[in-house]
């Protein structure tokens, strides 16, 4: 098992949930002035605001637990690539509108189940963050499901394109249900969510929406892993960090 203390495991746990929000939120913010319509752009900006807002709360909590005077910004701007423990699904590049919607859908279906379970955490702060986030991700799930159905059951072109997005991103969904050693330790305390147990319900949501969208579910069982457990990311991740941390790295110690 892990050598982490419970305290360290908890700091890492809060930060890793926050990493998912920050990184996917960052990706969505890259859609600014690139979306197919102003309405869609505003919806994505809205999701980005929610997700980065979740990251801020989780980082602030992690900083408090850490107790060495860190702030939310230390987590976002001063950690290296390997310290980020987000799911790979959160970081893969945006691709086209279909890829973005599919990613948001897979992630939001997971987030809805995850935050529902987190509201029952014995850690009151995490439970409260879970309750607030749940409302937001429930909307993200609705928004992305509606778009998935529109694209799947829209034109031949959109059907083909979004099916490809599903096939391409499918291999990143296996990691959602893995557990790190730290999570297993916190699960015993009733703090962490048993992510492995979320899979049947996630499968159900995905199957239902894909059916409605006239899309098929890939058979491929291979899963890319490594972001969450080891901080081993995709090649694209370094550019997110380079972009995001540029100011803090170039002008260290400043107040903004």
């Amino acid at each position: 098992m892990t050598n982490l203390s419970k305290q360290e495991a908890l700091v890492q746990y809060a930060a890793q949930i926050g990493d998912n929000g920050l990184i996917i939120g960052h990706r969505m913010s890259e859609w600014c002035f690139r979306a197919p319509s102003i309405e869609m752009e505003m919806a994505l900006m809205n999701c980005a605001l929610d997700l980065i807002g979740q990251a801020r709360e989780l980082y602030t909590y992690a900083a408090k637990l850490d107790g060495t005077g860190k702030t939310e910004d230390d987590f976002a701007y001063l950690r290296d690539e390997k310290d980020f423990r987000n799911l790979l699904l959160a970081e893969v590049p945006n691709g086209d509108w279909g890829d973005t919607i599919v990613r948001l859908f897979f992630m939001s279906a997971y987030n809805k189940l995850f935050f529902t379970a987190l509201t029952k955490s014995t850690d009151e702060e995490l439970a409260a963050i879970g309750a607030k986030s749940l409302k937001e991700v429930t909307y993200h799930l609705r928004f992305s499901s509606e778009w998935l159905i529109r694209l799947g059951d829209g034109t031949d072109e959109s059907h083909e394109r979004v099916q490809k997005s599903i096939n391409d991103l499918w291999a990143y969904t296996g990691e959602l249900f893995t557990m790190t050693d730290g999570e297993k330790m916190l699960l015993e305390e009733g703090i962490a969510v048993d992510t492995a147990a979320l899979k049947p319900e996630w499968d159900q949501i995905v199957t239902d929406v894909l059916t409605q969208a006239t899309l098929s579910r890939p058979e491929n069982k291979w899963a890319h892993k490594g972001g969450k457990a080891e901080g081993i990311h995709t090649e694209s991740f370094g550019y997110i960090i380079a972009d995001m941390q540029f100011m803090q790295r170039r002008y260290p110690g400043c107040s903004w």
């Binding site: 197919p36 869609m40 509108w97 034109t155 072109e157 394109r161």
Partner: peptide, 15 residues
């Protein structure tokens, strides 16, 4: 953005 999004708007209209 407008051209890249044409297929999306068409899909929404068709749906």
């Amino acid at each position: 953005a407008h051209e890249d999004g044409a297929w999306v708007r068409e899909a929404a209209a068709a749906y």
